[in-house]
Design a protein around this nucleic acid. Structure first.
Lengths: 149, 149
DNA sequence: TATTGTTATACTCTATAACTATA
DNA sequence: TATAGTTATAGAGTATAACAATA
């Protein structure tokens, strides 16, 4: 076994387990703290997806957000109840559900995006150009590693 | 306003919101998939803290894991019920609770650590040395940005 | 029969508020 | 009174299993 590589990969894994939850919690807390937004992270991700993919089905959104159909069904119940999402049966295949943001949903999404970004920027503003570059690079590496499998 | 910096910081923030939940979900899922472990991420973090800080109080653990006292109290209930943690009243100040891993808890923690690391390594094994370096660097940057505030 | 979605059930996470025990 | 912890309550996340509706 290639011990050099193994050691560094283990270090990477350990770092991820330690740091990712830290950042995640921060994002989550910020989003709930801001009154205008009041969306959870999965909810935000669902709304973003619907914003980019109007008329998406429940399965599509669930797949993208990475949760099961029952969970997504319930989440959409909530979002519909709050007037952020519109849900109707597809006319061509009535098994499918067609989801879309309501105007209110679009506004909430934009507000949440702005607030979250502002808050994150606040935490990141001490970073110099090189550190920012490293961060972006790393996020791309992670996206590829975790998206395609 | 310094538009150059602002733009990059915004990009960083957007990337974080997009990628961190992805990685987080993966870590979570892997941990629950592995039979030997079956710990949630906050539970794992609590056990790790107890492993490094024997006799820690409830407040200490809650502070480190980043959740409130009631949540941690309940989580410890569960972990005590599963025989992973020992809870007793401090003899010097009976308001305090002294927490410690049981032998079973230590074993579970070690198993969970190994499994999680193995699974993460599986996802990361396509990375070259440079990418691994970027990842470690980025995690350090994030730790500093999100730990100290 | 296969696919899409919903309901039912069961845990966990997390927060806030009210309470208890100890100092 | 102040501090540490617990209990109560509530909403959300998540999974699995069972079910309904449609194709």
């Amino acid at each position: 076994m290639e011990s050099d590589t193994a050691v560094t990969l283990e270090t990477c894994a350990g770092e991820l387990v330690e740091v990712i939850p830290l950042v995640m919690r921060s994002i989550r807390t910020e989003m709930r703290t801001v009154r205008a937004a009041d969306l959870t992270v999965p909810q935000l991700r669902a709304l973003i997806y619907l914003s980019n993919n109007p008329s998406a089905s429940l399965s599509e959104v669930a797949e993208h957000v990475g949760i099961g159909l029952p969970s997504m069904s319930k989440m959409i119940d909530t979002l519909v109840g709050r007037g952020l999402v519109n849900r109707r049966t597809s006319p061509t295949d009535r098994r499918y559900v067609m989801l879309a943001l309501t105007p209110t949903g679009s506004l909430s999404l934009e507000a949440a995006r702005l607030c979250t970004r502002e808050n994150l920027i606040g935490k990141l503003k001490g970073l110099n150009q090189e550190e920012q570059g490293v961060l972006i690079h790393a996020m791309n590496v992670l996206r590829q590693a975790f998206l395609t499998d």
